[in-house]
């Protein structure tokens, strides 16, 4: 009985280890294909194909957003804060969370001269949750600390 159990254990472990190894190797090989979008570095160094529908993403460069005087056209730049930037041109409604300095994803085509002609813009909301009244996490942390000290529960 004990031997049977041990044999089963060995088979089960073998299946799990084998399946994990197979999948890990597959994911490793597919890494770039599993990525949802091209990061700025891969757009600027020419890894992203030109003239094909692709997705790219990064942070909107502060102060780069320029709305057309008429219509819904807008131009802005996307950066990875690591020295790689590219310009985007888009006509249409922007999501509410589209803000300068925040993460976004664009879908469209890269032109020969490096401009990204987008037909869809999605906002990538970040992992920080800060109440409306507070501008940053440091302030929120301060308030939480002082509220606790004053015996006030945050509501």
């Amino acid at each position: 009985m004990r031997k049977l159990r041990q044999r089963r254990l060995a088979v089960v472990l073998f299946v799990v280890v084998g399946a994990t190894a197979t999948l890990s190797l597959a994911l490793l090989a597919l890494q770039e294909n599993v990525d949802l979008f091209y990061e700025p570095a891969r757009v600027t160094n020419g890894e992203a194909p030109v003239g094909v529908d692709i997705r790219a993403g990064g942070m909107v460069v502060e102060g780069s957003v320029a709305h057309d005087r008429e219509g819904l056209g807008v131009a802005f730049s996307i950066t990875d804060h690591g020295g790689h930037e590219f310009d985007v041109r888009y006509v249409g409604l922007l999501p509410d969370l589209f803000k300068e300095g925040k993460g976004i994803m664009v879908r469209g085509q890269l032109t020969e001269d490096g401009l990204f002609d987008a037909h869809e813009v999605l906002a990538k909301h970040d992992e920080n949750y800060v109440p409306h009244e507070l501008q940053d996490m440091a302030e929120a942390a301060d308030l939480a600390g002082s509220a606790k000290a004053a015996g006030i529960e945050p509501s």
């Binding site: 949802l36 509410d96 869809e120 813009v121 999605l122 906002a123």
Partner: peptide
């Protein structure tokens, strides 16, 4: 829908 601008994306 209100935050991303779409209900579904095929990300990982």
């Amino acid at each position: 829908i209100p935050t991303w601008g779409t209900g579904w994306v095929w990300d990982a």
